[in-house]
Amino acid sequence: MLATTIQNIINALQWGSFYALIALGYTMVYGVLTLINFAHGDIFMVGAYIAFFVATFILSMLGLPGWIALALTIPLTMILTSAVGVSLERVAYRPLRRKGAHRLYVVITALMCGLILEHANLALLGASRKAFPALITEHVYTIGGVTFTNLKVAVIFTAILSFVILHWIVTKTKVGMAMRAISYDKFAVPLMGIPIDSIIVITFALGSGFAGLAGILFAMSYPVLEPYMGALIGWKAFIAAVVGGIGDIRGAFLGGFLLGAVEIMVVAFFPSTYRDLIAFTVLLVILSLKPTGLFGIAKTTKI
């Protein structure tokens, strides 16, 4: 019993790590721009594909061993995925923002960007799934009936480490302070001499970079890539971010793990087809009870 519980907790943590990492990007962009970047799930997918190409290139072309390949793949993927996220911002979102378009038009543009990423991938690489190369050898450990692999533990620790880094950036650095300032008052910030566009670019770069990291980890854990892999997981991560209280990175992190836990629990007790149904129902209930999420601050209406 205890062993099963611990096993489920480990599974939930690992599964939640992906949601948490993606949700972090959603929430950072939202915090700064109040923009739901619906392309973010697909950026995660792009990240996984970039990791695939980088890793395959390093392994087969350069013939380097797996651990070096991994050490090179992680930074390269994060940088390249950041570049994708930032270029979306520059090409699609920023011009609209400059024109003062309604916020929701930017959201629709984000949705469209996501569609383009998915289907361009499908058109370029075809519908066949890609098998991600094994970069490290997986060791299975069993302690007292609880089974886990070194990869699972690495995923969980990477997620926690990423959170700590992002949290440090947001709360302690000047850039983070500027980010929070923008989310409070978009109009006063430029008057204080803060280059708002650079801050936005940094936000997108960070968010997309960590989505890329999630892509690598996901590809290593479930080594089958397909163009639609980002869609559902992206929507869910977004919901996780909202349940945590969108705009707050602690919320996104917690929401991600919460969603992971709910899904693992559902699968443990019900047929797996009920996973989405029950997970979404739980989220709906949470949002009905706490309409601004767990960490969200209720906006007081002032008359």
């Binding site: 739901i36 929507w235 129902t281 709906l284 949002l287 009905s288």
Partner: peptide, 10 residues
Amino acid sequence: DYLAIITIAA
């Protein structure tokens, strides 16, 4: 946006 999520969830 919170209501938007509820619609997606629905």
